[in-house]
Amino acid sequence: MKETIYTIPVMDAFNADDECPFCYIERKLEQEAVEFIMGPAYMEDDIREETDKLGFCRHHHKMLYDYGNKLGTALMLHTYYQKLNKDMHEQIAAFTPQKNGPLARFKKSSSSSGEPQTSLGQWVRQRDESCYVCRHFKEKYPRYIDTFLQLVTGNAEFFQNFSKGKGFCLHHFGDIIEAAEKTLSNKEKEKFYPVLFERMETNMKRLEEDVSWFVDKYDYRNREADWKNSKDAIQRGIQKLTGGYPDDPVFTKR
């Protein structure tokens, strides 16, 4: 197949011996975005305009803080607050409280579940879900999924690599199935799905056994037994279930 800017990162991810190649790609894209924002980019008006508009989610605000460029973070917060406070003033000015009946106090609040029912609640929810770094990943992620499916159906060497791999985390496994159903032919599915499902079941069972042996090692009778592959079973087990890297060190300025 024709090589694209997405081909090499996908191949690198599958050569990394990771529990999930797409977690590997996601982490790389996330770190690249933080490095870009906390580099000279935070002084660029067009970038600041975008970060003022989109803001950052809780997770990526923490990454920006940990990165180590406190002046850059403060400058972004400064202009972000200016726009945010202007927007909040407009939202508050347009807000009209609902007229509740005498029994309203006895009704259970629905704020803990479902969609916000007020304009201010909807505005806050939108701010919570808006993030410059998340958007950076979400814009590129579908192309990496498509590239993977093109490689796995059109490159024999890559297919062999995939068929010996560790599968994926459950989160990215679901995304792959959704994309494959839309893009692969019936013939391609007949070849792809059996290998994908075998890899998932085999490797999920491997994680179950690793975690089980980690627990058994705390039995005094196994004190002198070998740890086998279980020393990092907790970290890998969590990644396999939810994605991400729970044991990653803080990502800081190099």
Rank of each mutant, 00 (worst) to 15 (best):
S109R: 05
C131K: 01
L120A: 08
F95E: 06
G121I: 04
Q117A: 03
G101C: 10
A94E: 11
Q117K: 08
R135F: 01
A93D: 14
S109L: 13
K108H: 11
D128W: 05
Q122S: 14
E129I: 00
G101H: 08
S130R: 00
L103H: 06
D128R: 02
A93S: 10
S130H: 03
H136A: 06
Q122D: 13
K107V: 13
K108S: 13
A94N: 09
D128I: 03
T118M: 10
Q91C: 00
F95Q: 03
R127T: 04
F106T: 12
Q122Y: 02
G121E: 04
A93E: 14
Y132A: 00
H136N: 09
Q117I: 01
S110N: 12
P116T: 03
E90F: 01
P116F: 08
L120R: 03
Q91I: 07
T118L: 07
A104G: 01
R105K: 15
Y132H: 00
Q91G: 01
I92D: 08
A93I: 04
D128T: 07
K107M: 10
R105M: 03
T96C: 09
R125I: 06
G121C: 08
I92Y: 09
S109I: 03
S130M: 01
K108C: 07
A94M: 06
K108Q: 12
K107A: 14
T118N: 05
Q91F: 02
F106N: 05
C131N: 01
S111C: 09
T118F: 11
S130T: 06
S113Q: 09
A104M: 04
K99G: 12
Q126H: 13
S110Y: 09
G101D: 11
E129G: 02
G121K: 05
Q98I: 11
L103T: 10
T118K: 00
L103Y: 09
P97M: 05
K108E: 15
E115W: 09
I92L: 14
C131L: 03
V133R: 00
N100Q: 10
Q117S: 15
W123D: 03
P116Q: 08
A104Q: 09
H136Y: 06
Q126R: 14
S113G: 02
Q98K: 15
Q126I: 00
D128C: 05
Q117E: 14
S119I: 12
D128L: 08
S110K: 11
Q126Y: 09
